[in-house]
Design a protein around this nucleic acid. Structure first.
Lengths: 126, 126
DNA sequence: TAAGTGTACTATGAGTCTTAGTACACTTAG
DNA sequence: CTAAGTGTACTAAGACTCATAGTACACTTA
């Protein structure tokens, strides 16, 4: 369920955070369902428990999960987080469009590509 | 002409590289025009000459500039670089669209936002 | 000749990421 | 109650990157 890329420049703990953020916001992980334990996930991913702990601490700080002492971490149900996460995508889109504009990429090229990319994954279902 | 953000997580030398890449590919810096000297640019940006040198080495390695011993670095005219740089924008767009799709952002939301963002800078001209 | 240019090299400090190991309080199943 | 599993906190160390500092040398040009 969780995949990390050791080649990626992004720190491992950050990859884990973003991965869970998406899983939670998209509804794959339901509210109040239990997160993998720190030690178990560390074993599964073959990384240090401290790295998982760092990721979970960040997720808790941002409101994605909540801890229960002695029992574990659980998914927090918060509809506002979805909007927040979606907004961050649009912020990235704004920067990307500005960059493309500097490179003289025409507006319709963005529209066309975005549409194509969006439909890409669905062809495999056929 | 060159602005760097010390708060940014991206290394300074990398910011400089990307900045010049855009300036060169977009034609603001014309082929065979002289780049700022390593020492002069370091003074202007209040950073270490070694950092500029690192950026210039990367730009040379990627074919954006060429050095002339004792004279300086000059902009390299290469039309292929523009395509390469534009392609990198589309690669980023693909990743962003995939991320948005996971977050249940509808396809037309991307199209609408992209169009709006593209036109944003132009209103100031009125 | 002197000033300006690129280039190369070593050294160092700061910061981040990750791992390693330990410890303690809590909850739950037995 | 006990043992296992849970989160959490802490220190320590190694590896790596980034940026700075300082020096040196060959080249070109006014």
């Amino acid at each position: 369920m969780i995949g990390i890329d050791l080649q990626n420049r992004k720190p491992i703990y950050e990859q884990i955070v973003e991965c869970f953020e998406t899983l939670i916001v998209s509804g794959v992980l339901e509210p109040d369902s239990q997160m993998p334990s720190v030690r178990a996930l560390a074993m599964e991913l073959s990384i240090n428990p401290n790295t998982i702990q760092k990721a979970y601490a960040a997720l808790e700080q941002e409101g994605y999960i909540y801890p229960v002492k002695g029992r574990g971490n659980f998914v927090s149900g918060n509809e506002g987080l979805k909007q927040k996460k979606q907004d961050s995508v649009f912020v990235s889109l704004r920067e990307l469009v500005a960059k493309g504009k500097e490179l003289k990429i025409p507006c319709n090229a963005f529209v066309e590509r975005a549409t194509i990319f969006y439909q890409e994954g669905e062809e495999q279902k056929v």
